[in-house]
């Protein structure tokens, strides 16, 4: 095997995937180009904007700052997967209700990042929500509505 090509076995959204990938291919390019999971977006490719956020082994990472080759044996989850399982249905509903997205390009990354905060439990205050989302760029909303939506879900979940 050429060392420039790497065989990987992983699960993506619960499905087993066996692929041969170029060593240089980033995780987000792999998800988009090889698996057609275009819900993870490319915004800056240098780790600043957060549009490529996905979950690897249960934690959110930048899809542009990991190589697909590194994901051998990993459990990768994308926005398509967490949408289908219903894990973030309440958060998505809150985003819709609050119009916490406009163009929607940042939204998959924003939802996954917010879900990581919410999964810790409790009701974070607005500044804690802003801090947790500080690595996810949104040019459209001005963030206020996103903070509202995340806050409302935290309140609902903590009651429930």
């Amino acid at each position: 095997m050429s060392p420039h090509l790497v065989d990987i076995r992983l699960t993506v959204n619960g499905e087993p995937v066996n692929e041969r990938v170029e060593a240089r291919k980033t995780l987000v390019d792999f998800l988009r180009d090889d698996l057609g999971l275009t819900g993870s977006h490319i915004g800056c490719e240098h780790g600043v904007c957060g549009a490529c956020t996905v979950r690897v082994d249960g934690v959110v990472v930048r899809g542009c700052l990991m190589l697909a080759a590194q994901c051998d044996g990993a459990r990768v989850e994308t926005i398509e997967g967490v949408s289908d399982t219903g894990e973030i249905a309440d958060l998505q509903e809150a985003f819709e209700k609050r119009n916490a997205l406009q163009c929607g390009y940042c939204t998959p990354g924003m939802l996954l990042t917010a879900q990581e905060l919410l999964a810790r439990g409790g009701v974070p205050d607005r500044s804690a929500i802003r801090e947790h989302l500080a690595g996810n760029y949104c040019r459209c909303t001005g963030y206020h509505a996103i903070v509202d939506a995340v806050e409302s879900v935290a309140e609902t979940r903590s009651k429930g």
């Binding site: 980033t26 490719e45 240098h46 780790g47 930048r62 700052l65 590194q70």
Partner: peptide, 24 residues
Amino acid sequence: LLAGGQSLIATLNMRLSSPSLLVD
């Protein structure tokens, strides 16, 4: 050497660095 990659992979994406091999 590739560890967390949070700086290295950004510089690779920008082609500021061109290693022959990444050792993970």
